[in-house]
Structure formats: C-alpha cells, structure tokens
C-alpha cells in the first residue's frame, strides 16, 4: 500500500525583482509501506527541504502530498500537526534532545503532548528504555551521554508513539563510524518490524541499508533506483 505520494511538489523562495529561487522542482515520488528509502545528493540539492516537507515542518510548498489516503495539501496547519503527531517520527542529525530533561523525560514528552495518561506513559517509556537497553541511563541528562547514546535516545523518542513513518535527517552525521553502524543496524531492525523509513544521507554505506535511493540535484530528482537485497 502506498505510504507517501508526492506529485509536482515545488518549493521556492522569492528574491528581489520578482525572481524566485527554487529549492525543489517538480518532485514526484511514491513510497510504499515498509520501504527503506535513502535520499541522496550534493549539498544544496534540497534533500533536507524535501524531508521537512514530508515531516510537515514546512508548509510553504505547492503540489500534492498524500500520506496514506490523506490529502495533506488540503489540510490546515493545525490538522497537519495532528496528523504528524499521529503518524510520523523524526530523527535529527543534531539529536535535538531537550537539555533540561532527563532521558526518561525526553522519551516521555511526545506522549505527554499526545495526552497519554500518566500511568500509560510510564509503561510505554519503561518498555522503550528496555527495548533500547538504556534503562540505566534514564535519569541522566543529554550532556552526560555520548553522541551515539544521544542519537539512540533520539531514535527511541522518534518511535515511542509507534509512528508508521520514520524520517531521519543525516542520523549518523555527527557520530563515529561504529556508533553510526549501531544506529543504522537499529534502523534496519525497525524497518524489518514494519516501520517505513526515509533517510537523508551523504553516505553510500548508510544508503546501502535501505532498498531504494532517490538522487536529488539542484532540486530535481535525477535517478531513483532500487537496491536489490
């Protein structure tokens, strides 16, 4: 079943003298449920911009965007936010953990924003800590963790509310290679369990974890191709 359908997606910024700068041009993409897609391309190609459109962080685009059967392009900003909360998890290159919250509280916060009651939150967070084997770190603050551990927590936070779609923007960009491998192995496992993953990456090695690569250059899709595993 189709998870994501993009049709004629364009993103531009106005410049002086009625000119425009196009970040994305005529993007058409279909992503099926359970796929693990990597978006690659040189700097400035529009990869992160595309990911932020998929994650509904950016609303200044034109075209059609279907998430499942839902026509996102017809939704208002508040409706998109609700849909995002229900269906999408996001992993950031800089982890973006909240520095004033412990690991436990960082994991809990997306559930609290989704009005999950306290006892249920406690149960879910406990399960997630266990699943990611970070129970012993639950009372530590992000500043007390290594980069890899922080990203691990970032991934745990992204999937804690069971999203159907996981978006990752250069998830290993700030990590050592061994830490990066751990994260990518984790992604592989999540994908095997049924989570659809779309990642932005510069790394061929990371892209190889997925089953499809979409190449972007100057805002255009150049050549999507499948990786046979």
């Amino acid at each position: 079943m189709r998870m994501i359908g993009l049709s004629h997606i364009e993103r531009f910024f106005p410049l002086a003298k009625a000119k425009f700068f196009y970040v994305l041009r005529d993007i058409d993409i279909d992503i099926q449920e359970g796929e693990f897609v990597s978006i690659m391309g040189p700097s400035g190609a529009g990869k992160s911009s595309l990911l932020h459109i998929l994650g509904m962080h950016d609303h200044g685009w034109s075209g059609e965007y279907f998430l499942g059967d839902t026509a996102v392009h017809h939704l208002k900003a508040k409706e998109r936010a609700t849909l995002r909360n229900e269906q999408i998890g996001f992993v950031f290159q800089q982890y973006h953990l909240l520095d004033d919250l412990t690991v436990y509280e960082n994991l809990e916060i997306p559930l609290s924003y989704r009005k999950v009651n306290k006892s249920e939150r406690a149960a879910i967070v406990a399960d997630t800590l266990d699943r990611f084997q970070i129970v012993g770190k639950k009372d530590l603050y992000p500043s007390q963790l290594s980069g890899g551990q922080q990203q691990l927590v970032g991934v745990a936070r992204a999937i804690i509310s069971n999203p159907k779609l996981l978006l990752a923007d250069e998830p290993t960009g700030n990590l050592h290679s061994s830490q990066g491998e751990e994260i990518m192995d984790l992604f592989k496992r999540l994908n095997a369990e049924g989570t659809t993953i779309v990642q932005v990456t510069h790394s061929e090695k990371n892209a190889a974890y997925g089953n499809r690569i979409i190449q972007l250059r100057d805002g255009w899709i150049v050549e999507p191709h499948n990786l046979n595993h």
């Binding site: 936010a81 996001f90 973006h96 909240l98 924003y113 936070r157």
Partner: peptide
C-alpha cells in the same frame, strides 16, 4: 528557539 522548535516537532501545540 531550538528547544521550542523541538517541542513543536514532538507534538506540542501553541497552548502547551
């Protein structure tokens, strides 16, 4: 700003 953006990305509404 970064912290607030993260909170919104994690699902916080304007009222929260």
């Amino acid at each position: 700003e970064r912290e607030l953006a993260i909170r919104v990305a994690l699902g916080a509404g304007p009222w929260r």
